[in-house]
Amino acid sequence: MSDAIHIERLHYRAGKNFAIKELDLHVPSGSIYGFLGPNGSGKTTTIRLILGLLRPLTGRITVLGLPMPEQYARILGQVGYVPEQPHLDPTLTVRELIDFQAAFYPRWDRARADELVQRFELDGEHLFGRLSKGQKAKLMILLALSQCGDLLVLDEPTDGLDPVVRRDILGALITYVSERGATIFISSHLVHELERVCDWVAVMDDGRLITEAPMERLKQGTKRLVVMGAPAEIVNPPFRVLTRESTNGGGAGENWVVGDWEPGMTSYFEGVGASVREVIDLDLEDGFVELLRSFRKGGTRR
């Protein structure tokens, strides 16, 4: 499977305090790729680099097989983008904004735009500046979907929206992907939301990619273990140790959070004179938090 977005050794610096460092990212074509990270981790900056709004210091970005930013005009013709903050002119009406956008995109689907106006219950004569937050978000999604792009880049599109609007928007996205086989790159810090829709996920913090994996592998492979009698140092475990701390009751018991876990790996502990008393499934949010904790303690990265 080719990559809709391919980033190699990207480096970017914004001011003295923030930098994207050595970023490698591979977004498979046709995937719904969740881009997770806390606020200020570099998600929006990465998206702006992907869209050619910023220029990297070093590294290579390829979007839909074309180099960015060299071919930005061609690439942007195939990319629908929904920014974190609505950026459209508040003095234009919904209909005027749709007409404006339609003029710039050769593949503009007027029928889809009309259908989404109905589905999202938008009034074409309303000024953009007078729309509610949810209506603005719906219009942004409408504009992105009607471009008929092969890639949608969505920067926290449902942040701060009520559950009904979120469901409408996610529903429209899933319908679009199923009809067109497009790729969706969606950034968010709403972990549960991404867990429902994404098949790939990446986690970013402090300008670095902590992990990038298929959703199922990340969810299935991240476990909390209750380990008894583990030695202080362990050598070459077949899994990643994210965090390791004593249980509340003290004694020889420890709580471990591990990544890349597979059934049968308990035998490793027997080999080092320890035992696993319990293997606990973690949901994506728990896994995400543990990954961040591990990373911030100077832990592993892959």
């Binding site: 869209l51 050619g52 709004l53 005009a73 061609r74 690439i75 942007l76 013709g77 195939q78 990319v79 983008y81 920014p83 950026h87 459209l88 002119d89 508040p90 003095t91 710039f104 995109y105």
Partner: peptide, 17 residues
């Protein structure tokens, strides 16, 4: 004025040089 208000994001993401 409108582009300044939107921090030029809309203009910069249009598929045109």
């Amino acid at each position: 004025a409108a582009d300044h208000r939107g921090r030029h994001i809309h203009a910069l993401t249009l598929p045109i040089e």
